[in-house]
Amino acid sequence: MSKIAALPVEEIEALVQDIGTLPAAPLAMPKQMLETAEPLTLRRLARAVLALLQIGPAPRREM
């Protein structure tokens, strides 16, 4: 250990680059769909429950 620890910082960096670099083999990792257009919120959940029990506010109607 003492041999490696005595090396200058630049040399340690270069050695790590030389020895430690991972093999280059890219693989695509597409982002997944996790949220619906309107994500579930407590307000939406409460509204849905009230609507189910028919005790929520009456839906607005266009005149």
Partner: peptide, 12 residues
């Protein structure tokens, strides 16, 4: 981990 897979995942 995602970064690793995108750069080197194809090797394994």
């Amino acid at each position: 981990i995602e970064d690793f897979i995108q750069t080197s995942g194809g090797a394994y």
